[in-house]
Amino acid sequence: MMKLVVATWLTSLLLLTGPDAWACRVCRPRVQAGIHTADYTANLLLLLLPVAVVLLVGVGVFFAPALKARLTSPSAHD
């Protein structure tokens, strides 16, 4: 029993004193540089373009009856 306690204690100690887990601190500046290039705005706009198109279609469908009514109703100036 004592052996098991010592073994568990030693294993825990070993795990605690091991190297910290860290997410590539060395390459982080290179990742940041890879994201914030001169093409950042172009990439962002191109990437968002399909979403913007779908959003416009959805909003257009939502307001379609109001737009249709406005276009087909006789103007006050007529």
Binding site: C24, C27, R30, V31, G34, I35, L44, L47, L48, V51
Partner: peptide, 22 residues
């Protein structure tokens, strides 16, 4: 490379944020 994969991961995140808004 890890750097290229992480840069792509960033743009995937931007895409996910946009479809979340949608």
């Amino acid at each position: 490379t890890l750097v290229a994969a992480k840069v792509n991961m960033y743009w995937d995140g931007v895409f996910h944020a946009a479809v979340w808004v949608l």
